[in-house]
Amino acid sequence: MNPEVSDHSRPLRLFHLSDVHFGLEDPAAIAWAEQAIAREKPDAVAITGDLTMRARHHEFDAACAWIKGLKAPVTVEIGNHDIPYFNLYQRFFDPYRRFRAIERQVEAQLDLPGLAIVPLRTTTRAQWQRFPWSNGWVTDAALRETLAAIDALPQGTRVLVAAHHPLLERRARDNKLLTINGSRTMEILAGRKVMAVLSGHIHDAFDITEQTPSGPLRMIGAGTLSRRIRSTPPSFNEITITGEEIHVVARNLEHVPTAAMQIDEVPENALPPRQPGEPVAPVGAVPPVDPPVH
């Protein structure tokens, strides 16, 4: 039997988590997600950034201890909240030092039967184009590294790319810059026949297909497991891959249907309140402010 066909015939189940924000984590939500992973044993867990709220040592200690206790293969992307806010020397010269307790899982490629989850870094230490530096930038070096990993895979391997920021480069209603170099990145990934890009940053789930000059590219966003909710309760994505098909369920503590959990376009960021005209999921209202960070 052809092993490639056998690999593709077995459904794979992934849990896609994001924006846990230790420091403003939701204890009930993270316990629920941890228990689901232990009980259901997904093939892998992809965490697409923002483990912490302010990249403080105690936040990283709690985040790393939680991740090390998860009973599944895990890959962790770096979010904009995970780069030091207050220690500028460390931000510029050793920004990922506080990840060392889980360094083997940070931006780790996960190789599953017939499928690879490949990381794409979208965070930067600084951005000369704008301030603040919370939104995404796919640098040429980051893109080259991701493409090299994809091109090294055995022929026929299905690919998911994991990043923190959604790759939309411009906001549709006013052309405001979102993720620098996002359009080119989407076009290239579509040309590589990437199945989907997994991301976070927005705190509401989404499942959107963008058209590029090289074909369609699916973008799947996870919600948050923190108290920084937007228009939906805390959630994570359960992703089932069968052959070339992807099925997404936005699982949440309030048992809201997936269609009511997902927004239909990508807003600028996760800051409240959303601006008039920005997307809100059918399930709820946007809180006016974040909980206070101590």
Rank of each mutant, 00 (worst) to 15 (best):
F131N: 01
A196G: 12
E278Q: 14
G277V: 05
L217K: 14
I30D: 05
F22L: 06
W137L: 13
H203P: 08
L88M: 11
A162C: 09
E59Y: 03
I188V: 15
I47T: 13
R98K: 15
I202F: 08
V256P: 02
P119Y: 01
H21L: 04
R274M: 01
Q129G: 00
V283G: 00
P132I: 08
R228Q: 14
A116F: 02
M53C: 13
N252E: 08
G221V: 07
H247N: 12
A142P: 06
R125E: 13
S9H: 13
S199D: 14
D61V: 07
L143C: 02
K193Q: 12
E169P: 04
T124L: 01
R91Q: 09
R100S: 15
L168P: 00
L110N: 10
D50S: 02
P95Y: 12
R54G: 07
W133N: 15
H164M: 06
G114L: 11
L253C: 04
L253V: 05
T146Q: 09
P132W: 04
A72T: 07
Y96N: 14
A62Q: 14
I208W: 10
D19F: 02
D264F: 00
I83A: 02
V161E: 02
R54V: 02
F22S: 08
V74P: 10
R228P: 01
P3R: 14
I263M: 05
I180N: 02
G200D: 03
V74G: 07
S199G: 14
L51F: 09
R184P: 01
L147C: 13
G223I: 12
H201F: 10
R39V: 07
L70A: 05
V194F: 12
A65I: 00
N135K: 06
P73R: 06
L253H: 06
A149C: 08
A29P: 04
Q127R: 11
R13P: 00
L110M: 07
N237E: 12
S6T: 15
M195G: 13
T224A: 11
Y85E: 08
V118N: 01
E244S: 15
W32H: 07
L12W: 03
M186S: 05
R125A: 12
A101N: 12
E210Y: 15
I229H: 01
Y85G: 05
G49I: 15
V283I: 13
H165A: 09
G221C: 10
D204H: 03
N269G: 08
K193L: 03
